[in-house]
Amino acid sequence: MPAQPIHTDRLILIPFTLEVTGLLLDGDTSILQQLGLQLTPYWPDQEAIDTFPKIINNLELVPEPSGFESYMVVHRNSMTVIGDAGFKGLPNTDGEVDLGYAIIPQAQKNGYGFEVAKGLADWAFQQRGVEAITARCLLENVPSARVLEKLGMHEVNRDETVIRWKLLKPNLQPTIAN
């Protein structure tokens, strides 16, 4: 079954497809209108355009989007794309998926980064084989680090430029009443 949109309180995460990503990479944003989205001058921004080849590479590895690829982050009320987010592929042999997200500057500081990360994490932990979510952020990206901490991630290590994070799957064992 192909990947389905993920709904949060204020956002809809719409899975990228090869067709959509290819058209956007070619500069054709009319596909967004065909999907019922409103065009803005803010997205796709250069950061998104730079990510499209990676999204295409990940989508070419699977017969259809699995959900472990990337999503357009759509503001539910305005139906505008305010960013992109997702995973960098299927779970690895340790059951880890790597999370990433980007919100356009015009929509930052409204809690959308956390809402996206939480929506993706909640979805991922419902999927078979996912045991942990990892993420990376630049050392100077304090707002992103705050989002990952709020999500419950713990710093695994860092170097001179990047902090690496991990969130283990919650152990949701039912409690037995006496």
Rank of each mutant, 00 (worst) to 15 (best):
P2C: 03
E140P: 00
G100V: 04
M79Q: 15
I55E: 01
H154C: 12
I31L: 10
H75W: 11
P5K: 12
P65G: 09
E131P: 00
L151M: 14
P15F: 04
N92G: 07
G67V: 05
A177K: 14
G95M: 07
I6A: 03
L120C: 12
P53W: 11
Y112D: 06
I133T: 03
S70E: 05
Y101V: 01
M72R: 05
A132C: 06
S70M: 03
S78W: 06
E19W: 05
F68L: 02
I104E: 00
R10A: 10
A132P: 00
D84R: 03
G27M: 11
K169G: 04
E64A: 08
R76K: 14
E131V: 02
N157D: 15
G95S: 07
A102E: 07
I176C: 04
S30L: 12
V73F: 06
I6R: 02
A121M: 10
I6C: 04
D50G: 05
G111Q: 07
E140T: 11
G22C: 02
S66E: 13
P15K: 08
E140W: 12
P2Y: 05
Q106N: 10
P5Y: 09
N92H: 06
Y101T: 04
L167V: 06
E60P: 05
T40M: 05
D159R: 10
A145Q: 14
F87G: 02
L11F: 04
V97I: 11
E96L: 00
Y112P: 03
D50L: 13
S144C: 14
L151S: 13
D9T: 06
I176E: 10
K54P: 00
L13Y: 02
L24V: 03
D28P: 03
T51Q: 11
T8F: 04
S70K: 01
A3H: 06
F52N: 01
